[in-house]
Amino acid sequence: MKHIVVISQQAPYAQQSLKEALDLLLIFAAIDQEVTWLIEGDAVFALAAEQQPKLLGQKDFTKALKMLELYDIDSLYVCAESLTDRGMDDSALILDVKTALTQDKQALLAKATQVVVL
Rank of each mutant, 00 (worst) to 15 (best):
D60N: 08
M1P: 06
D32Y: 04
A21P: 00
A43T: 05
L47S: 08
S17M: 08
L93A: 01
Q9F: 09
E50A: 09
L18C: 15
T102F: 11
Q58C: 04
V115Y: 00
V117L: 08
D96K: 13
I4T: 01
A64M: 15
A29W: 01
A49K: 15
A92R: 14
D90R: 14
G87V: 07
L118H: 02
H3V: 03
K19N: 11
K19L: 09
A100M: 01
V117P: 00
I27R: 10
I31C: 13
V78R: 06
D85Y: 11
K54I: 14
L68W: 03
E81F: 11
E69S: 12
V35P: 06
V44T: 07
Q58M: 04
I31H: 10
R86A: 05
V35Q: 04
L56H: 04
A110Y: 14
Q106A: 11
K63L: 11
E40S: 06
T62R: 10
E34C: 05
G87D: 08
F28L: 10
Q16K: 10
Y71I: 03
D90L: 13
P53E: 02
M88K: 11
D23M: 11
D32S: 10
L24S: 09
K19A: 09
L76N: 03
S75Q: 15
A46Y: 05
M88T: 12
Q10P: 06
F61A: 02
F28Q: 00
A100Y: 04
I94K: 04
Q114T: 15
K63D: 11
D42M: 06
D23W: 11
V5P: 01
I31K: 12
D42S: 05
A92F: 12
L108F: 07
Q15N: 14
F28G: 06
T84V: 10
L38Y: 05
A14W: 15
V6C: 01
P53H: 01
Q114F: 09
L22S: 02
L47D: 01
A49G: 14
L22Y: 02
L22R: 06
Q103H: 10
H3P: 03
A21K: 02
A21D: 14
E81V: 10
L22P: 00
K98G: 07
K111G: 00
C79R: 10
E40N: 07
L56Q: 01
S75L: 14
S75W: 05
G57A: 02
D74I: 00
V97H: 01
S82T: 09
K59Y: 10
I39T: 03
F28N: 07
Q33E: 13
Q15H: 12
Q51V: 07
A11I: 04
M88G: 05
L83Q: 03
I27E: 12
L83G: 03
T113P: 06
L76H: 03
A29C: 04
Q114R: 13
T36P: 02
F28R: 00
D96S: 13
A48W: 00
A107P: 07
L109H: 04
Q15M: 12
Q58H: 02
Q15F: 14
A64E: 15
V116P: 02
S82H: 06
S8V: 07
T102L: 09
A30Y: 03
L26V: 13
E81Y: 11
A64Q: 15
D60G: 05
E81T: 13
I31W: 10
A30M: 07
M88I: 13
A92C: 11
C79N: 11
